[in-house]
Design a protein around this nucleic acid. Structure first.
Lengths: 212, 212
DNA sequence: ATAGTTTTCAACACTGCGTCAAAAACTAGA
DNA sequence: TCTAGTTTTTGACGCAGTGTTGAAAACTAT
């Protein structure tokens, strides 16, 4: 322990943004940049501190560890991720177009921040802080997805298994596919990838072959 | 550099198993045990060496790094993984039963060695040695899968997209599901998981809802 | 100005990595 | 069996990165 605020800011208190708040934010932003460049395991705390204009030991005034900082980075991007799929999650029926649009938004984000997104969402042991945030986010995403599936099942669409399992599979499939797409940027045609993925998710969940 | 043999033994030379060969093997076996206990990042070379009965610096006589040893561990288990799915890969038509059997074999293996399998096959940056073996193995698996899909397509089964993409998706789905199953051993019923996964793969690739 | 708080930093101790050269154990030929 | 050569083992060294601490410096509010 010994940090400025709790690891992941729950609800910020209403005080004016003091110098420390700014520094903390610039640390998060600097980290996002640095984490784009190389695997997190190869990033030193010295580097992160330097990128934000402080010395290494100063870093520990703001965060307990590299992982805690990564957790903050992830945390600040959750809102975006929620937005991405909300259109489709709110829609009814299969609505392949909305699904594809959501996936396209996700892919666009992964093309930029894929490097650390991979480490945050795919790595088996990302450290306790990240683990916690990841679980929350995945849980949340799966629950909403799960609800949609149940809704669709009630509306008479064929569904191929327990909704919660299917939801998790779909989310995993999406993440893994984006991860691959980031790792081999030019191996696949982007449009084809999105089409295939959208269809794959629909087939996976609803057992339906859409036209086209 | 400075190791006894090349990182990943291609084809062992025909000499009798000298003392060093035994030690190397016991190092691999000890590592498999140790890697079951905790995340690889938390395992020290000292620990691995100790588990095989030598000192830390002695380790480097056999392997360049922890990752190189992990690569050797993975390498020695490739044959098993190949066997698992070969029945289904060789069969024709959907053959859900063969598929389910193959998946069941895989799940059984993951229940034992899931910890390091996750790190070898899911972690974004497992180190160059492991990366190489993983790529080879995944490539190989996907190719065989891909061939089966093409075969099936020719035989008149509906297929939902480019075979190579579908194959990769199916493999990713399987790995991710097994990984989840390892991480939360008692969250899902094993039989249900296998049924759902088998059906999911069939739907994903062939767009078919099987009876049952 | 000044007392209290927030922020910064240099110095320290610690863990784990990788290298090296010398010692020890092993092997084969005379 | 002795011996020269090879394989294996080891302790000691230097290095990089971590996390802590206590004091200095920079702020803030009275």
């Amino acid at each position: 322990m010994g940090c400025r605020v709790g690891g992941v800011p729950a609800i910020k208190s209403r005080r004016a943004p003091t110098k420390g708040d700014q520094r903390e934010q610039s640390l998060v932003e600097a980290a996002r940049m640095v984490f784009r460049e190389k695997p997190i395991s190869q990033v030193t705390i010295d580097e992160l501190a330097g990128a934000a204009g402080i010395t290494r030991s100063g870093f520990y005034f703001y965060f307990e560890s590299k992982q805690a900082l990564l957790a903050a980075v992830v945390d600040q991007r959750i809102a975006e991720a929620d937005m991405e799929m909300s259109e489709w999650l709110a829609s009814d029926g299969l609505d392949r177009d909305a699904l594809r649009r959501g996936l396209a938004r996700g892919l666009a984000r992964w093309k930029v921040d894929g490097r650390w997104l991979r480490e945050a969402f795919l790595a088996p042991y990302p450290g306790p802080e990240v683990q916690q945030i990841r679980d929350r986010l995945v849980q949340q995403g799966c629950t909403m997805f799960s609800k949609r599936i149940e809704r669709d099942a009630k509306a008479g669409l064929t569904v191929g298994g327990p909704p919660d399992l299917l939801a998790k599979m779909a989310v995993n499939l999406r993440n893994a596919t984006f991860s691959d797409a980031y790792a081999n940027p030019d191996e696949f045609d982007e449009g084809e990838l999105l089409d295939t993925l959208a269809d794959a998710v629909l087939r996976l969940v609803y057992g339906v072959v859409t036209a086209g």
